[in-house]
Design a binder for these strands. Structure first.
Length: 427
RNA sequence: GGAGGAAUGGCAGAGCGGUCGAAUGCGGCGGUCUUGAAAACCGUUGUUCUGCUUACGCGGAACCGGGGGUUCGAAUCCCUCUUCCUCCGCCA
């Protein structure tokens, strides 16, 4: 959520920068400014009337104490109109604030100055890449075939237990999941992130805090009986740890990492994108989250990108880092870098991480602030997060790129975690 | 799940219809003293909205778990929700 102050003081800039996300903010901004004006004048009238009533009440107290009952009764009669006025003003203020907020929460975050122009994925800019492209035979198999042949991931069994998009990992496949999770968590904690293990269901307030609600509720599984939502990413519970929190400046930066399963309904996405591990309803992901001083958030974003790059390198996967253009960015982000790895048999780039700076957009919703030296009022912190990393597509690329006649080779960095160097057929 | 009790400022803890944004203690910040520090003493100490000033500041409104009600007036009384504690039941 953008701050009212920003819209009030730099409305032209807000409109101009949102054009980069193909969002026409002219009308909403106009409405916001009008409502804000009205809100303040109502507030001011309400405060004045309330002050009058308070003064009279105080007088009545004094009169009653002095046993001047008749005068007190006379004063009481004066309050009726004031009270009616207060009710009316309070109701109109509440209505105004609801309207204002409803428009405000629909404005996307402003893209930062570094965001390139463009309408969609084809306009994203490849920053850099690395890793050797796999040299596979022409008959190299896609990961879903490999998963079946080596009996390490069972999609059919998942269909039976739950439904499409809920695979069952078995044997070395299950061990590989556990190894990747431990590997990522260790790498992250070694880089200074504190490991946390949050709940996998959150309440409405949390869903709102990170921006999944009210707009994207169709993306989350909703447990209606208790009104909880299954988390679509650890970002939700982990960032909400800091909802309604005022940090001390010496607490910054906050760096957290968490492994969680993630649940996504993925309503409306069908077709060949969803084959195998490419798109699941439940998947494992290790997330990193930072809360930063506004002056340092872009430095931190850079750090996070480098850190994730280190992970992909250690897994010896061919990768590229893509800077998202305005048209391809998420609602909440100010600047996003996607990581893609190349899956040799599908011959496709698969997104495995998305690292973003949200600036104060989430913090404003969360009321996440800190006390800065020299500033009397607490100020909004900046939040950032990224995947480090999402497992299924990493596994897809590992399986496809490392297939050999003997089996699937495990990258060296992972061997201490898997305890095996190769995935072989079970008998 | 059943029966009782509780929720107050960073923490502890008073207040149970008016002068209470709230005693007191601890902590934090500033100062006196000191070579420095501790102790002692003095002062200060939250958040939001808002008006004037917009450097500092001054004034108004709201906030005592959330929401609603009674009253001229609510931290204080009533209703409701949530959370926590104690006892019983069930259970990984």
């Amino acid at each position: 959520m953008l701050t009212l102050n920003l819209i009030r003081e730099k409305s032209d800039e807000v409109i101009r920068r949102l054009q980069l996300k193909y969002f026409d903010a002219r009308e909403p901004v106009k409405e916001i400014l009008a409502l804000d004006e009205e809100r303040r004048s109502t507030q001011s009238k309400l405060d004045g009337t309330q002050a009058e009533l308070n003064a009279i009440s105080k007088e009545i107290g004094g009169l009653l104490k002095a046993n001047r009952t008749e005068e007190a009764e006379a004063k009481k009669n004066m309050t009726a109109t004031l009270k009616k006025e207060i009710d009316t003003l309070a109701a109109s203020l509440a209505a105004n604030e609801t309207l204002l907020r409803n428009i405000l929460v629909k404005l996307p975050n402003l893209p930062s100055q570094y965001v390139p122009a463009g309408t969609g994925a084809e306009d994203n800019i490849v920053e850099r890449g690395g890793g050797a492209m796999p040299e596979l035979a022409a008959d190299a198999l896609p990961h879903w075939d490999l998963a079946r042949i080596y009996d390490i991931i069972d999609f059919e069994l998942g269909n039976k237990l739950t439904g499409a998009g809920f695979p069952v990992y078995k044997g070395q496949g299950a061990k590989l999941q556990r190894a990747l999770i431990s590997f990522f968590l260790d790498e992250n904690t070694n880089a200074g992130y504190l490991e946390v293990m949050p709940p996998l269901m959150v309440n409405e307030d949390s869903g709102f805090g990170t921006g999944q609600l009210p707009d994207k509720d169709a993306q989350m599984y909703h447990v209606t009986l208790d009104n909880f939502y299954l988390i679509p990413t650890a970002e939700v519970p982990v960032t909400n740890i800091y909802r309604d929190v005022i940090l001390d400046s010496k607490d910054l930066p906050v760096k957290n990492t968490a492994y969680t399963p993630c649940f996504r309904r993925e309503a409306g996405s069908y077709g060949k994108d969803v084959r195998g591990l490419n798109r699941l309803h439940q998947f494992d992901k290790v997330e990193i989250v930072q809360v930063q001083h506004p002056n340092k958030s872009y430095e931190a974003l850079d750090d996070m990108v480098r850190h994730v790059e280190g992970l992909v390198k250690k897994l010896e996967l061919p990768y590229r880092i893509v800077k998202l253009c305005g048209g391809d960015m998420s609602f909440t982000s100010a600047l996003t870098f996607d990581f893609e790895v190349f899956a040799g048999a599908q011959k496709r780039w698969l997104e495995v991480s998305s690292v973003s700076n949200f600036e104060s957009f989430q913090a404003n919703r969360l009321k996440l602030r800190f006390r800065d030296e020299g500033s009397k009022k607490p100020i909004l912190a900046h939040t950032l997060n990224g995947s480090a990393l999402a497992l299924p597509r990493i596994v897809a690329a590992l399986l496809e790129n490392n297939q050999t006649p003997e089996g699937i080779k495990i990258p060296e960095a992972l061997v201490p975690y898997t305890g095996f160097t190769i995935i072989e057929k079970r008998r």
